[in-house]
């Protein structure tokens, strides 16, 4: 029993890692651009297909492929910023629809390029860290956990300790005042979009060998990310991380001890309860709603 608890705990840490990478990117984009990026799950999917094309297709070394995937998805983010979100700056519903359109295009491209069926990716490493007979952590999952810790710490440092990060937070807080202080809103939007998309891309790339890669894999990812950013409070990076961990724990445990559908129901109910008790999320403030 203790083994099962420990193993489920490890699984939850892994789930929390990739969920928080996706959710933090989504929060960053919403904070700076004020737009809900519905295509965020598909950016995750694009990252996974970068691995399919480069690592499984062209035999590029795995970590090089991950780096290229990160850059590629980051550039997709820049494209979205320039082509969709900047022209639709004053039209939040428009940004929503445009991102849905972009999502459909990315899905169709994945279907056309790689087929509808899931793709098999050769495992990166078969190594497993065994804590005991029944408590094991595959090293491939450890990569995801390490990436989440390193990248999110780096992001935290970037946001709180550098001038760029300071400008970014300023324009998230009050775009007009930030612009009056000489901060280029376009520039900060570009940076936020690149980082946000890149984080989703790297999460997709690193988890690609561990999950079934298919054109519609972004769907469950975006639903989870929405739950997490709502529970954490939209616009709060710390909240998104805390909520990722909490959601992953609850979801993994309910899945292990009961079943997956019930876990989804519990997760959604939890979010509804948070919204009823505190309609701005655990860490949110009212002004961004």
């Amino acid at each position: 029993m203790l083994d099962l608890l420990a193993q489920t705990g490890l699984n939850a840490v892994y789930a929390a890692s990739y969920i928080s990478l996706v959710a933090v990117g989504l929060v960053l984009i919403f904070g700076v651009m004020g737009v809900i990026n519905f295509a965020h799950g598909e950016l995750f999917m694009a990252g996974a297909y970068a691995i399919v094309a480069l690592y499984a297709g062209l035999n590029v070394p795995f970590f090089l492929a991950v780096a290229v995937g990160l850059l590629f998805v980051g550039c997709l983010g820049l494209l979205m910023e320039r082509a969709l979100f900047r022209p639709l700056k004053d039209n939040p519903l428009g940004g929503l629809v445009a991102s849905i359109g972009f999502l459909m295009i990315l899905q169709a491209l994945a279907v056309m390029g790689f087929g509808v069926r899931m793709v098999h990716i050769p495992p990166v490493t078969q190594e497993v860290i065994a804590f005991s007979d029944k408590v094991r952590l595959p090293v491939a999952r450890l990569y995801v956990i390490i990436a989440a810790i390193v990248l999110l710490s780096a992001l935290w440092y970037f946001l709180k300790r550098t001038r760029f990060g300071w400008a970014l937070r300023a324009s998230a807080q009050d775009p007009e005042a930030a612009a009056l202080q000489g901060i280029s809103i376009t520039q900060t939007a570009r940076i936020a979009m690149f980082i946000g998309a890149g984080l989703a891309g790297i999460a997709g790339a690193l988890t690609a060998p561990l999950v079934s890669v298919n054109p519609h894999m972004g769907h469950s990812v975006i639903v989870t990310a929405f739950i997490v950013i709502i529970v954490g409070g939209v616009g709060s990076l710390e909240g998104a991380i805390v909520a990722s961990v909490a959601y992953a724990l609850v979801h993994t445990f309910v899945t292990t001890f009961w079943d997956g559908v019930l876990a989804d129901i519990v997760g959604l109910s939890l979010m509804l309860v948070v919204l009823i008790v505190k309609p701005t999320g655990l860490f949110g403030s009212a002004d961004r709603a």
Partner: peptide, 12 residues
């Protein structure tokens, strides 16, 4: 096969 792609482009 291109239906969602064209549809998405039209939406945008």
């Amino acid at each position: 096969q291109m239906r969602p792609l064209v549809y998405g482009a039209i939406m945008i």
